[in-house]
Design a protein around this nucleic acid. Structure first.
Lengths: 213, 213
DNA sequence: GATGATTTGTACGTATGTATA
DNA sequence: ATATACATACGTACAAATCAT
């Protein structure tokens, strides 16, 4: 959007920290402090915070300090539910819209991930998993759908940490991916939606376990 | 979000004008001019524009003037497609989640709209139509879904003008609403999704007619 | 609940990059 | 294509509201 400006760099960096969990939900975001950290005035910091507020990563009230967004239980539950619906939509459309190269790339990535599972590399799997889902978002050939799906994923990411920590979850995730890939390669949109929905349900369960701990 | 501040008032007002079509897509938004119009300095204007940029109503490039968002044909087509999917999702969930009062209110509104159709009051129908769809968004009992559906509707509204202008479209819209209401009242989520999808397809057709003129 | 300290909100000036002749 | 005019990006100062004691 805005490149090569302080406010854009600050926005990107703060967003990255929120998504990565370095800035936990509820953390106070002090304009002056952030300005000092980045060695700039408060002006670009304020503009970055406004953008983050509009995109939902930050909560702002008039005259009060901003905090990293911390949606309540109900809102979070709703967001996870919608995340599943959006992913299923992407998968369904991707099954119909992907071209030969995209299908081949998705299949190849899925096969590569089998090796990662064998090594039990949870970090590597998490990264490849992002690429896998991203390939499906893009494969739907609908920029707006990909945009809101990624935005939802970003807003949820602070609450999905350690989803691949538990042993055995890697293997189950990869098996679910297999069903999704099969449906997409066969061009069966309905099956792809169903397989993706089942896959995402596992992730949500993982969150609920986390929330109760 | 931010109440009782200049930047918030300016944001609301600019958003309203963009949604209403007073500020057409592609219109240049000059900070100094807007500041003069609202009798404030450029600072709150800049912050309002940042928020509008993040929410997609305005396009911004570094060091260049902002313009009212004007998505290309492809993006617009994708947005209309997703709008249908989101509305269908809302309808499907509403069929399962609405309580007695909500179902009764939706039914009552639909009956009121029959009278508006008889009078041929296109403006009144447009207004009631917003309420009708809004009731379904809320009826899904998922705040996040309602939020992104309304945001999508807002971003599309500059491109949906005059959809009820053509005679006969009012009657057809109302008949489609009837199928949606029936499915929701019966608690049939699948039927509600299908009925909503068919209804929205009409709107998209109306847009495509418009785009070619 | 009141009050002082802190933080946000707005105005304005200058520098830098963009757009137009 | 170059230069001039112009709009945006950022810094600083002060007013107004919050928060912490």
């Amino acid at each position: 959007m805005l490149r090569r400006t302080s406010s854009e760099e600050i926005r990107r960096e703060l967003a990255a920290r929120i998504i990565a969990g370095t800035l936990a939900p509820g953390t106070v975001l002090d304009e002056s402090q952030i300005a000092a950290d980045f060695t700039v005035s408060r002006t670009p910091v304020r503009e970055a915070l406004r953008q983050l507020g509009a995109s939902g990563l930050v909560e702002q009230r008039a005259h009060a300090r901003a905090i990293v967004a911390q949606p309540g239980e109900d809102k979070l539950r709703g967001m996870f539910e919608v995340m599943g619906d959006l992913e299923a939509l992407c998968a369904g459309k991707a099954a119909l819209a992907m071209d030969r190269n995209e299908r081949a790339a998705l299949d190849a990535l899925h096969i590569e991930m089998a090796a990662i599972v064998r090594d039990g590399d949870a970090g590597g799997y998490a990264e490849a998993n992002d690429a896998f889902h991203g390939a499906i978002y893009d494969g739907a050939h609908n920029d707006y759908l990909a945009e809101i799906t990624r935005a939802t994923r970003q807003r949820l990411s602070p609450f999905r940490r350690a989803q691949f920590g538990a042993l055995g979850r890697l293997g189950r995730s990869h098996a679910e991916h297999g069903a999704i890939v099969d449906a997409i390669l066969q061009g069966d949109g309905e099956a792809a939606m169903q397989a993706m929905r089942a896959h995402i349900a596992i992730v949500e369960t993982a969150y609920q376990d986390l929330a109760r701990s």
